[in-house]
Nucleic acid binder design. Structure first.
Lengths: 160, 160
DNA sequence: GTCAGTGCAAATACTTTGCATGATA
DNA sequence: TATCATGCAAAGTATTTGCACTGAC
């Protein structure tokens, strides 16, 4: 799915909600789909401030990300390090996350078997599942390699 | 495991960290193991204020819960509704959570198969897993029953 | 007696909100 | 033109911190 098509969906969504398309909303939207990393409110604000274009205040970034989330265009991911980051959704399969406690990198993975087991567990308790979040935390491959080379892997594991 | 034994462990832990046992720490600790529900910082503070005993300030509640978490006596659980609650650990098997989006109740479940699959996925990416968190969200059995009786289950699901 | 802990109030960080102004459909 | 959106600054909310005093060991 390419971006213009996604942007049309955004415009349709806004129309359906009686909201207006503004330069600010467009900038936030486009940035969210241009980047291929997870971003925080602050990072989005910094990006937009640094680039050319109509000003977007922090308040508007908050407000727009809320709209995008409600519309199912982006999703909030809690990193477990006390911050929330967002990722765009359309064109992405559902996935879960692994957060590196050393460098903060977020890797993604999918496992249909796990999903199925989640549904099974919910059913067993009469729980109607509308969503889930699975996050592994630890040390990513790159950091593990570096730390091993330095001989500090075990010490780092201790300190976490 | 009964409480006196756990409390001894807490005292040993404090000693090992060069920390002191104080009436405030004792009150927070005991309350955390007396209750069998998840609690927020604020709730713990309110409980202690309402009951007899040496005053415990909010700052001390924050500080003590941090110590308890570091010592592995309690664990923080993000509810996904923008709050963090704690649960005591010792004497409890590891488990995951289902959070009801209607009443906020947190149910627990365990599934060794899911755990194994998590480890497998981490290994596959060279990720050293030190922890994980799995949270299902949706509507708990009780709420589902009530809503069905009222005929508002579908509407509620829509609105989530 | 020494060092750590406590309460308090101030500070911080993050997010939301009221309101006057400006822009979109 | 009727809403809705924006920016700004103020207000919340949640948590942390500096400091003088108190208490545990």
């Amino acid at each position: 799915m390419n971006e213009p098509v996604i942007e049309e969906r955004f415009e349709e969504f806004l129309k359906g909600e009686n909201l207006k398309m503004t330069p600010q909303r467009r900038r936030v939207f486009e940035k969210a789909f241009d980047v291929h990393e997870h971003f925080s409110v602050e990072r989005m604000y910094e990006w937009l401030k640094a680039e050319e274009g109509p000003d977007v205040s922090r308040a508007t970034v908050y407000r727009t990300l809320e709209v995008l989330e409600r519309g199912g265009f982006i999703e909030a991911v809690e990193t477990g390090r006390g911050e929330v980051v967002y990722e765009h959704i359309l064109g992405h399969e559902h996935h879960d996350h692994m957060v590196c406690r050393v460098c903060g990198t977020i890797a993604e993975f999918q496992d249909e078997e796990i999903e199925a087991l989640q549904r099974k567990n919910a059913e067993k308790l009469g729980f109607i599942m509308t969503g889930h979040m699975l996050r592994l935390s630890g040390i990513c491959g790159d950091c593990a390699k570096k730390l091993r080379a330095e001989g500090t892997l075990d010490a780092t594991l201790e300190s976490l």
